[in-house]
Every structure is written in C-alpha cells, then in structure tokens.
C-alpha cells in the first residue's frame, strides 16, 4: 500500500522534475510566458483589490444620513430656537442640533483664509443651521428626500440639503466600476486560459514523437499528459505568485491615494487593504486553476 503510493508519488516527482528541467532549458521563453501570465493576472487583481478596498462605499455601507436645514439669513435668535423646536417635532426627525449664525461664524473664523475674508463683511453673512438626523424610516431615499422637501417648505427655511446625494452618486459610479472590473477580470481570465492552451498546444506539437513513443511503450493517457499539466501548473503558480506580489505593492500605493481622495469628501471610507499573503494566495490559486484548465482545454482532444 505504502509502496504503491510511494511509486505513484515517485512518478509525479519525476514528471515535475522533467518539467522544471525543460523550463530551465529555455529560460527566456519561460520568463516571457511567466511575465505574460503575471501581467494578465495582476491587472484584474489590482482592479479587484482597489474595488474591495473601496467596498465601504458600496450600497451596504451604513454612514448616517443627515439633512442640513439652512434658515433664512438674519433670522432672530428666538425665531431660530422656535424653528429648531418645530423641526424637531416634524415627522421623520429623530434628532436636531441647532447651530446659530454666531457659532457658524466662529467655526469659520478658525479657518484662516476664510476667516480673513469674512472680515470684509459688515454683518454676519452666515445663516443659522439645523442639523437633522432622520429616523430609521427616513434615512434612505425616497423617505429621506420626502423629509428633506417637507423641511424645505417650512416657513423661515432657506433650503435643506441631504449629505448623501453625493454618496448616492458615488454608489452609482462604484456599481458601474464594479461591473466593469468584473468584466475585465473575466476577460483576462479568458486571456490566461487561451494563452496557456496555445502554449500547451505548441508544446504537444513539438513533442509529438515523444508522446507517440510513450504510447507505444504502454503509457496511458494520464502518464503522457502529466508533464504538460505540470508545465501549465508551473506557469500558473509562478505567474500567480508574481502577480500577487505586484498586486500587493500596487494596492499599497493606490490605497494611500485613495485615502487622500476620500478624505477630500471629509470621510475615511477606505477599508483596510487585504493582508498581502492573502492576495498572493488568491492570485496564485487563480493562476494555477486557470492554467491547469487551459492545459485541459488543449489536451482534451488529444488521442493517442
């Protein structure tokens, strides 16, 4: 039993050793193929990784919805307080925070450039604002938009703005990006599959004699095809490893930029990037699976 297993493993080891020796014999060709596979895997992997890291922006995110209700300028303090209470009592409102014109002014003064500019005005140009947190039934469209319109129509209110209009736009953009990236990934997967299928095809063409002789000596299908599967596996694992490392490096760089970009929107939505060995594991697995599938594709019809 153990002896049989040992012999079986022996034969695999020999096939693998033969494959590696063959690849080493033509280092340039092997390196070119390996790089081709690596690039074809890295491109969609980087795109998928960036998509993953912006995942917090996808429709399942739970950033709280807000409505900023701007009151008409020069509204008296008492009237501001009364409007605050009225808004708090409106259906769909969970919480309010009243920010008077003076408080707004003070906040702005702390920002140097704008503060200097404000000095040009004789009186405070800033309106008072009521920050509204909607309740659970109104924190998403269309309930949110309904509530926003209701607040806008109150007497003394200048306009009401939801903070998630841009978030919704971003959601739409990201949904589009996600579709595009998945299409890209499928396309590049097909590229890897076909490249390996073509490479194995030309390999079998040039080793036709060897395959025939092995068959004449009583080798079965599996034995004859084994070296080609190992060749494909080597390309897949090697290319996948390279692609994984490239992707890990590229995403680390892109993540920095992504964070900067998102901080412009006043938020930190970027998820932590994947742990790099996990990226390598994924690309290596995908590479191996695709390459072996490609080999299978081209060996499928081989009859000896």
């Amino acid at each position: 039993m153990f002896a049989t297993l040992r012999l079986y493993l022996d034969s695999h080891q020999m096939a693998l050793a033969g494959t590696l020796a063959r690849l080493a014999k033509a280092p340039l060709a092997s390196a070119l193929t390996l790089s081709l596979i690596a690039v074809a895997l890295a491109l969609p992997a980087i795109a998928l990784s960036v998509l993953h890291n912006t995942g917090a922006l996808l429709p399942d995110h739970s950033s709280p919805a807000r409505i900023s209700v701007y009151l008409k300028p020069q509204t008296a303090a008492a009237e501001v307080r009364r409007l605050g209470e009225e808004i708090a009592a409106t259906e769909g409102v969970a919480q309010v925070a009243v920010i008077s014109a003076e408080e707004s002014l003070r906040a702005f003064r702390e920002q140097r450039d704008i503060g200097d500019m404000l000095a040009l005005f004789e009186s405070n140009p800033l309106p008072a604002v009521v920050e509204v947190t909607p309740d659970a039934q109104h924190d998403r469209a269309p309930g949110l938009n309904l509530l926003s319109a209701r607040l806008h129509n109150l007497n003394g209110v200048d306009r009401a703005e939801t903070n998630i209009a841009w978030l919704q736009r971003l959601d739409a953009i990201i949904a589009l990006a996600r579709t595009a990236v998945h299409l890209l990934a499928a396309l590049f997967a097909a590229v890897v599959l076909l490249v390996i299928a073509a490479i194995i095809r030309s390999e079998t063409e040039s080793r036709r004699d060897e395959m025939e002789i092995l068959a004449l000596l009583g080798a079965g299908d599996a034995f004859i095809k084994r070296p080609f599967f190992y060749t494909a596996l080597c390309y897949g694992l090697g290319g996948g490893l390279l692609a994984g490392l490239t992707t890990a490096l590229a995403t680390a760089i892109i993540d920095d930029h992504l964070r900067q970009l998102l901080s412009l929107y006043g938020s930190d939505f970027a998820r932590d990037g994947m742990f790099w060995p996990r990226i390598v594991l994924y690309t290596t697995g995908a590479g191996a699976a695709l390459c072996v599938a490609g080999a299978w594709l081209s060996l499928r019809k081989e009859k000896l």
Binding site: D10, S11, D209, L214, L216, G218
Partner: peptide, 26 residues
C-alpha cells in the same frame, strides 16, 4: 521497432528506463 524510435533529448539510461517508469518500478 524497425526505426528504433529512441528519444534523443535524454541519455541512453532514461531511454531504456522508459518502460519501467511507465510500469511504475522503483
């Protein structure tokens, strides 16, 4: 075989050993 049918990409030993490898000898 009438025309030998040897593999010229490997030494004599490996050529002769082929049937044993196929048969799975140690």
């Amino acid at each position: 075989f009438q025309n030998h049918r040897l593999l010229f990409d490997r030494p004599v030993f490996d050529n002769v050993a082929l049937p044993l490898r196929i048969g799975g000898a140690g």
